[in-house]
Design a protein around this nucleic acid. Structure first.
Lengths: 341, 341
DNA sequence: TGTTAGCACTCTTTTGGGTTAAGTGCTAAC
DNA sequence: GTTAGCACTTAACCCAAAAGAGTGCTAACA
């Protein structure tokens, strides 16, 4: 069933108005605020049609209309005007990143901070542990008689440190030797590659088998179990929005937003090649809090996607603003990341 | 003014009852639940006395009494019974730490998780960047023509990575040389020590002055600016407590609990040598959320205090339970930390 | 045939008063 | 010093009435 142009216009007005006022929208406000040229009775019959089609609903017979999840989806994909950042907002974004590009983690933290500030929603980001990441440096050195610190630095400048057990009778020189030996074999290789060739080359390391196994399991743990880092900002912003005056809802929301594991689940498979990915309503994904929207963008370095960032908030989200802020941050992020590489 | 024994008893009952029920306490419930041998009229006159002294207050003339901040302080220091952990709780604590001692960060994360779970309050922890921490390893290696990654590992197994600028015309061999040179001078020294001797030895490094300065400023930044790590768990637990049904209060609370900087401010100077430190009501400290209590314990390794952990929540907190959980976690933490060293 | 004015209908929100319940402070007696 | 008794205060509850918001329907109109 196709929507007439007028129905589309009206639907857009309803969603716009509901997003900005959080109040059910009546035929009266549409004629008064947006369409002075037609009567409220006409709008009423159009609204009834839109309700029939599943785009709107009423809380009770004498309330205005509220958009359905389908309405938001349609709004975002076809109706919404693209927003423009003001000069001031652009300035805020730029200055948020000034002088903090020495450390990937900080860049991401600044990103979520400024996004939360500008949009007034909770902002989240995810950086993946990529199997394509290459090892740049590997070092093992003794900490106490039977323990050593394993240090792996990768190209994406992710650093992994982990204590591993070592045989107590091994001399420092032997440990050094083992470290160099394993380093020579692993440096320059991708993490995923190493995982695969594990069994094949294991026998080459026969004399240092124990250490070799520890290194392998550290790499495996890094890629498989501990699969990414997250950053968040503005967790409390959710309370600014009236749909979250129910403490149970807030708690649900916080339990996702403050749990690294849940956030990773939520963010890791997001929008492979699309710039902006919008997930509305949590019904399809078990990890998503109920009645939430997630708007994310991905960021890449050297053409490889390394993570995503965005906002999570109520269905009634100011998508227009959020999208423009994410795009703005994306442009600046790109500059920083490409400058670094 | 001294409190009679009976007044103390009554005050204790009022606080106990208020902590467990969250309802203003009347003279009737005291005689019925706690003191069947005297009449409510007697209790009423005692309550009036306690109110006079500033330990109790009423919301309105016909409500029961609520403890004041002073009452909580007095309760904690003199009235409260010491709690005992159940066998089940002890078991929960122990199993929370099983098999995760390979990484300091994870130990702390497990600590806050189990504390939040057992107490039902938000749990926070702080690990300081200690000026007494000794450098164990220092490494600099090139990343791109004019940038290198500086890697510093300290005894407390804190690792600091930072990109530093290097002269583009410097050869790899020269860089290696500089790295070894600086390493020899710094390894085994305390961070604070290095900061102090900075100017004195600067001229020794004349040929590598630029790199030397970068290393020094990285160390300085680490100790001075970025002074510690925090971990939190159960941020949403605050919503389980009826005094936080006001969204403004929740937001205030979350703005502290989710901000690393504010948490560091709050936790860094806590209770130098005391095992359990209780801060009630935020009026003395600007960083403390209003009407909150903070109960913390410190943890040490090799006799040096390296951080603190605890819970933050409403004034009406179950101090007894919180203290016993913190003590329980402390004992197990100690075992782990000493086993590691 | 689409649009509109008018109106009855539904449901929520607000208002107000009257009752109930909780708890206190005071007084007089023990 | 303790207690029973009672007047007083305040919040909480209930219920009914009124007001308000918004709709759907119908009949008239262009």
């Amino acid at each position: 069933m196709k929507l007439s142009d007028r129905k589309k216009k009206i639907l857009q007005y309803v969603v716009d108005d509901y997003i900005s006022t959080a109040q059910p929208v009546s035929s009266k406000v549409i004629t008064e605020k947006y369409m002075q040229d037609i009567s409220s009775a006409t709008v009423r019959s159009e609204l009834a049609g839109l309700e029939e089609m599943g785009y709107l609903s009423q809380l009770h017979t004498s309330s205005g209309r509220v958009p359905s999840i389908e309405a938001y989806k349609f709004y975002v994909s076809e109706l919404m005007d693209r927003g423009q950042l003001t000069q001031a907002e652009l300035g805020t974004i730029k200055s948020a990143f000034k002088g903090h590009a020495d450390n990937m983690e900080k860049v991401v933290q600044n990103a979520v901070k400024v996004i939360a500030e500008l949009t007034d929603y909770t902002s989240v980001a995810y950086t993946s542990h990529n199997a394509n990441d290459k090892i740049v440096k590997l070092d093992i050195f003794r900490n106490k008689p039977n323990q050593a610190l394993l240090l792996i630095v990768t190209e994406q400048t992710l650093i992994r440190d982990k204590f591993i057990e070592i045989p107590e009778m091994m001399s420092d020189a032997q440990l050094d030797d083992a470290s160099r030996f394993i380093g020579r074999a692993f440096i320059g290789k991708e993490l995923g590659e190493i995982m695969q060739m594990g069994e094949i080359i294991a026998n080459e390391f026969d004399c240092y088998r124990e250490i070799f196994n520890s290194v392998m399991s550290a790499i495996e743990e890094y890629i498989v179990k501990d699969n990414g880092e997250v950053a968040t900002a503005g967790e409390g912003k959710i309370l600014n929005h009236p749909e979250y005056n129910d403490s149970q809802k807030v708690q649900n929301f916080l339990s996702v937003v403050t749990s690294k594991d849940k956030l990773v689940e939520l963010l890791k498979d997001n929008g492979d090649n699309i710039e902006i990915n919008i997930k509305i309503g949590g019904e399809d994904s078990a990890d998503m809090p109920k009645d939430c929207s997630l708007v994310t963008a991905t960021y890449s370095a050297s053409g490889v996607k390394i993570g995503s960032y965005g906002v999570i908030g109520p269905l009634r989200m100011d998508y227009q603003k959020v999208v423009s802020v994410l795009e703005g941050v994306g442009r600046i992020l790109e500059d920083i990341l490409n400058d670094k590489k």
